[in-house]
Design a protein around this nucleic acid. Structure first.
Lengths: 151, 151
DNA sequence: TATTGTTATACTCTATAACTATA
DNA sequence: TATAGTTATAGAGTATAACAATA
């Protein structure tokens, strides 16, 4: 009878199988970019979700909470606190919806517009800085392929 | 003096700016695939993180908790409960590390190997099913570009 | 009867500090 | 002195149920 195999241990971790999975790679890439986002957007006091909400309000004056939720995959109760905070910061204001007495339309204030002009510039730049190995063409290809997945 | 503009409201939400951002698209795509993952992996009782941990143990017999943390971006205290659960399920076992008395090497049990053979097959298939608009070539291109971001 | 916005609350995920046993 | 694993705990993110006002 041969001796039993010695107990193995790992020197270099083999991640080859996980790296064949699109979900794994997409999540790792997203976390990598979000890490840089968190650093650079701390200056503005904006988390990724705040930035998305503010940006959508800026590009869709009068958008409702309900519409924000459906566009960003948020749940209504979780949006309430965010919108309150953005309003307290003086970045957005609520106005009665012209056609629906239940709803409130959301609008950027002048301060909010100034903030988002800078924040969007920063966001677009940090994307390039956080993916230095991608060419302009590759970045374009990548975005097109990602849209094919979720749209 | 002209009248003030009427209060605007939104009919179709404009998401064009956000869609120029790689981080936004990567996150949306990842969430889309993870949604299908959650459905199909519920059968095995595996969340994405459990699957990743089990898969790495399977492909790296004797891997330590510390190594799992660094490979998957987890924090050590948050891994303890997961590993305990996997052990209670009879899918993994801890064995003393041959070279380091502080560490425990993690190994799949026979039951864990059977489970992961099926689970990895399911994972690879659901990736294809959840991205029906991507060709084989596009999926390959996409994974290559995503790796360029985080590796 | 259905929907918008809201409150309260629970659950999960992630993060920090501190301890023990060993290197 | 540093590291692997662990415990306890705090904070952030995500989820469901229920209610008032309006459609």
């Amino acid at each position: 009878m041969a001796d039993k195999d010695p107990v193995p241990f790992v020197e270099k971790i083999n991640t080859r199988y996980l790296e064949t999975l699109l979900g794994y790679n997409a999540r790792r890439a997203a976390l990598s970019i979000i890490g840089v986002f968190l650093e650079r957007m701390a200056e503005y006091g904006l988390r990724p979700v705040d930035f998305s909400v503010m940006s959508l309000i800026g590009h869709n004056p009068g958008i409702t909470s309900r519409q924000l939720c459906s566009a960003l995959g948020l749940l209504a109760p979780n949006l309430v606190g965010m919108v309150n905070t953005l309003e307290k910061n003086g970045w957005i204001q609520r106005m009665p919806h012209p056609n629906d007495g239940r709803a409130m339309g959301l609008h950027l204030t002048d301060a909010g517009k100034v903030l988002m002009k800078e924040a969007e510039k920063t966001a677009s730049q940090l994307e390039i800085d956080s993916t230095p190995k991608l060419s302009v063409e590759e970045r374009k290809t990548l975005i097109g392929l990602l849209k094919k997945i979720y749209k």
